[in-house]
Design a protein around this nucleic acid. Sequence first.
DNA 1: CGCTGCGTTGAGCTTCTTCAACGATCGTGG
DNA 2: CCACGATCGTTGAAGAAGCTCAACGCAGCG
Lengths: 228, 228
Amino acid sequence: MLNIDPLANNSLFRGLNENDHNELSRISVSQEYSRGQTIFLEGQDGAGFYLVTSGLVKIYKLSLDGKEQILHILGPGEPFAEVALFAGSTYPANAMAIEKSSVVFFPRKAFSDLISKRPSLALNMLATLSLRLRQFANMVEALSLKEVPGRLAAYILLENEERGKNGDIKLPIAKSQLASLLGTIPETLSRILAKMTKQGIVTATGSSISILDMEKLQELADGETRLS
Amino acid sequence: MLNIDPLANNSLFRGLNENDHNELSRISVSQEYSRGQTIFLEGQDGAGFYLVTSGLVKIYKLSLDGKEQILHILGPGEPFAEVALFAGSTYPANAMAIEKSSVVFFPRKAFSDLISKRPSLALNMLATLSLRLRQFANMVEALSLKEVPGRLAAYILLENEERGKNGDIKLPIAKSQLASLLGTIPETLSRILAKMTKQGIVTATGSSISILDMEKLQELADGETRLS
DNA sequence: CGCTGCGTTGAGCTTCTTCAACGATCGTGG
DNA sequence: CCACGATCGTTGAAGAAGCTCAACGCAGCG
């Protein structure tokens, strides 16, 4: 096969047999979204959950006056909107494709039936939700206990561990989106990045960031230091 | 029996049979904590999870300079630290008894074995975690998109729905703790409550709050209005 | 080539925190 | 039962962090 099955290699479905995978393929529906297209809105009836197969999807909340807070950014292999399956029936936030994306949709009922019969599927799902709870706890901590420089530093370090190798990072999202993810606005992010650059902590050109002073970045992320 | 079994009536264990309940009783351990006593600390090995049977427990994060952000307040019947079971092995935050409390502790291994054999237990746990994810999403939204008056208004309204009847609320926690839960400090909370009182939205005496203008409170919580 | 979205920079302002002092409340031991 | 201390809550004044508004440069794309 030229196209690898997006379902087969996902950790969410680890431990399932061939039949289960066929069943999953049978009940799921592939969908395409173009950049900026809404996948669902907060409050809508949660008809099922999704898995990203390509592209990038953001989960976000909006205030009345239009300010956005991104809760998650999801890439290939990552599920979203699982919450709607198990508690309440509506989506708790909005979902939009940041870039051209493909997702697989799993209708609620069919998936519920399968999960009731497959303990390993339920356990995998528990692991997924638990990981997300951990991320949320860190996000609340960041928003409440850290200032924007600290949040940005933590983000850069995290990104460096996950994608960067030698301290060179390519931002996967636009800076305005990063601002929204960090709980601030583009202007503030821009100013702080400029300040970090001026102090020799990083260099930033376009969507590339290079870490110059890893130690200082770590201190900022931990809240040991101010940017002054 | 004089003492009702705290395990039998919990929604987490709904759908389990008599044997399972006996098994749960067998593997669990009762613990007592006095006011202010630490139950576990962030980063410690997560040896299991807990269920509050009486009293009040807070889950919280601390910054280096000692500021506290409360993530949850848990009362009788509510479980906590389930996350440590399914993702990572360490506790993601600190837990402390706010008042004299009794909890039941379920050691990791024994509970994992049971959950693997009882699909309904896994599903109940999924429902619990999903609900918590929803709460976290709302908390992030509040911290990032609402100002303190809005957060306080939302808290009062929520508390009124859950415990209050006719708009009279008895705060279950100290105001300093409420400030920490709302992501602010006691001084700010005090000032805003005073302002709300001055504007005839609520009256506050000690730990009692009475709602005078429900509509205005709702507008504040939704972000439609400022306190001016 | 022009338009539109993104990013940057500046000035002023709002919200919230910090620091400090004081008052109230509650539990406890004398 | 009262007195005391500790914790909690309130209020004021000053400062800091981040937001708003506005203008402008730049790049990408049709």
